[in-house]
């Protein structure tokens, strides 16, 4: 018997009914069988596509950032590089080796909460960035680090934190909601990576989040972990070891 018509093999791969003789042939024919298998796998993969798989364009600022980066990188474009380079370059604790990070104005936060919240914030923040990049005398508010705060216990909504540089001063913003009611209070800390040394940056309003000016000269790379703890009115200023939310700042 000759091989099965390729169009028919495709229909079989899609699950359409076939003549018993064709199916018999396929079972005994390595070539036809492997073709059906391949096409079946494609069809199965295609059938698993959902609405979120359909390609959507990135926000417009992504191209603008790429363009700035490439212009800054081009020796023939020294002038425009001066204008378009991220104004935080000179003040950010960005590692020189990570040159591409310099153009990444906004950094990571990873949470469904941030997904919903960040798009608006981001676009707003970017407007500020472009505004200040052309006016050196105005106040500069630039996000220099971000973290998503993952729930450690009792919190359903993930939260996020960011460090903004405003007029050369660093301010930690904590966005958190849905923290459980407590007869104690929530305290915000910056922890070293080994979590043994830490700096308290303030008390957090459980319903609104908060802004905490950071001590001048703080090295965020030495204290990159944002930690929210539940504290009790026990007069003990040390960390209660009862962390509610935690995340690492990505600078």
């Amino acid at each position: 018997m000759s091989h099965i018509d390729p169009n028919t093999l495709a229909l079989i791969a899609l699950g359409e009914s076939a003549l018993p003789a064709d199916l018999d042939h396929i079972r005994g024919c390595v070539m036809c069988q492997s073709e059906v298998d391949e096409l079946t796998a494609i069809a199965a993969s295609a059938r698993s596509i959902d609405a979120e798989d359909r390609p959507i364009a990135p926000p417009a600022f992504v191209w603008e950032n790429i363009e700035s980066a490439l212009n800054a990188d081009s020796p023939t474009h020294a002038e425009s590089a001066t204008n378009s380079t991220n104004p935080t370059n000179s003040t950010n604790p960005i590692k020189p080796a990570d040159a591409t990070a310099a153009v990444t104005v906004r950094r990571k936060s990873r949470s469904m909460f941030a997904l919903a919240a960040s798009v608006g914030v981001l676009i707003g923040g970017l407007g500020t960035y472009f505004a200040v990049s052309t006016d050196d005398s105005s106040a500069r508010a630039t996000v220099v680090a971000q973290a998503s705060l993952d729930p450690i216990r009792d919190v359903k909504d993930p939260a996020s934190a960011s460090v903004q540089q405003i007029d050369g001063r660093e301010v930690l913003n904590v966005q958190a909601s849905g923290l459980p009611a407590t007869d104690g209070f929530y305290e915000v800390w910056l922890l070293a990576p080994d979590t043994t040394s830490m700096i308290s940056v303030g008390m957090l309003d459980a319903s609104e989040g908060g802004q905490f000016p950071l001590p001048a000269g703080i090295d965020l790379e030495a204290f990159p972990i944002v930690d929210i703890s539940l504290e009790h009115f026990d007069g003990d200023s040390a960390h209660s070891a009862d962390s509610i939310l935690r995340g690492t700042l990505i600078i």
Binding site: E52, D53, R54, P55, I56, A57, P58, P59, F61, V62, W63, N65, I66, A69, T100, V103, T104, R106, R107, K108, S109, R110, S111, M112, A114, L115, S118, V119, L122, Q146, S148
Partner: peptide
């Protein structure tokens, strides 16, 4: 091709901001 890259990044990181970063990089 940016839509392709961005959508894959968005599906993987589940975060619009991270996806924008990945796309840019």
């Amino acid at each position: 091709w940016s839509s392709l890259v961005y959508t894959i990044a968005l599906r993987s990181t589940r975060n619009a901001e991270d996806a924008a970063d990945v796309t840019q990089l």
